[in-house]
Design a protein around this nucleic acid. Structure first.
Lengths: 151, 151
DNA sequence: GCGATTCATTTGAATGATTCAAAAAAAGCG
DNA sequence: CGCTTTTTTTGAATCATTCAAATGAATCGC
């Protein structure tokens, strides 16, 4: 993300342009699905005085303005992403917490309409797929079966 | 839930039968989707000395044994339910946090298979529907439009 | 460009859900 | 009934997140 991209996004959202805000946007480009803590760690590499509290403030404002989206998988700390407005979903690794995006299945909006809505007016269907990522499959395989079996 | 039901469930799961454990099972029958705190409040009505810590311990053990399931919608505290093993999903009210069950759409397992699994081996698809429950629709309507419009 | 006003950031502390740890009590086995 | 293992209690710790007051910076009108 270029400096002017971030500036334009902030202006467009009616937010003041500040260094911490630009830095958080830039960090999120390189670290999709990062936690506040991880974003902070990245931001302080260029702006050493930015506090974690500021990162929380910035993420609150960005999310409130629709520039970022927060996801809260299970009991993990919240993660943030730049990809907004396309209602995509997530794969979460149960072992290492890696997260990757998955597009919503197109054609029949599969999960947006439950059988019975019990009178609820729905505005979002959130889908989280839990499983083992490739790396963790390998790691678990090694741990439980260090010598590849030939059977 | 009768006393012998709870006892049988615990025995069947290989867990020792204790009063707090039976009381938590009974509480969950009357309070589906209750938080640890809410379960505790119910349990102490019959067993005043049971601590919140014990409720957490019990819920950990019950969930570990498959007698209960925990759900963690967004940043809400965890909720617990007796209904296990049928992979149902939940409607959560964004205003009052009410939760109701919805069955998985039958016939085509809609959400269990994303388009691309990115190499993940999946073992669960969790679907959370966010919206306004009936009561909160009424309450919001009243607040924003106290005199029903005739237009 | 400059100053006033509004909004952002910092610092330090508080909160709330949950977990850890050690000691006391109870469950289940023989 | 007594022994061993597991559970419960008590009290404190942890972690992500939020609150609040004071300082500092960004924008608007001139």
């Amino acid at each position: 993300m270029t400096l002017s991209d971030a500036t334009g996004l902030l202006r467009g959202a009616g937010l003041r342009v500040t260094e911490p805000r630009r830095a958080v946007l830039e960090a999120l480009e390189g670290l999709p699905h990062a936690s506040a803590d991880a974003i902070h760690a990245q931001v302080v590499r260029t702006l050493p005085d930015v506090s974690l509290q500021t990162v929380y403030n910035v993420l609150r404002d960005l999310t409130g303005s629709g520039l970022t989206r927060s996801i809260e998988p299970g009991d993990h700390p919240a993660r943030y992403e730049l990809r907004v407005g396309d209602n995509h979903h997530h794969l979460v690794c149960t072992r290492c917490s890696a997260i990757v995006d998955v597009d919503c299945v197109v054609g029949h909006a599969p999960c947006l309409t439950p059988n019975e809505s019990h009178g609820f007016v729905l505005n979002e269907a959130e889908v989280t797929f839990w499983g083992l990522c490739l790396d963790c499959q390998a790691a678990v395989g090694l741990a439980s079966d260090p010598v590849p079996s030939t059977h």
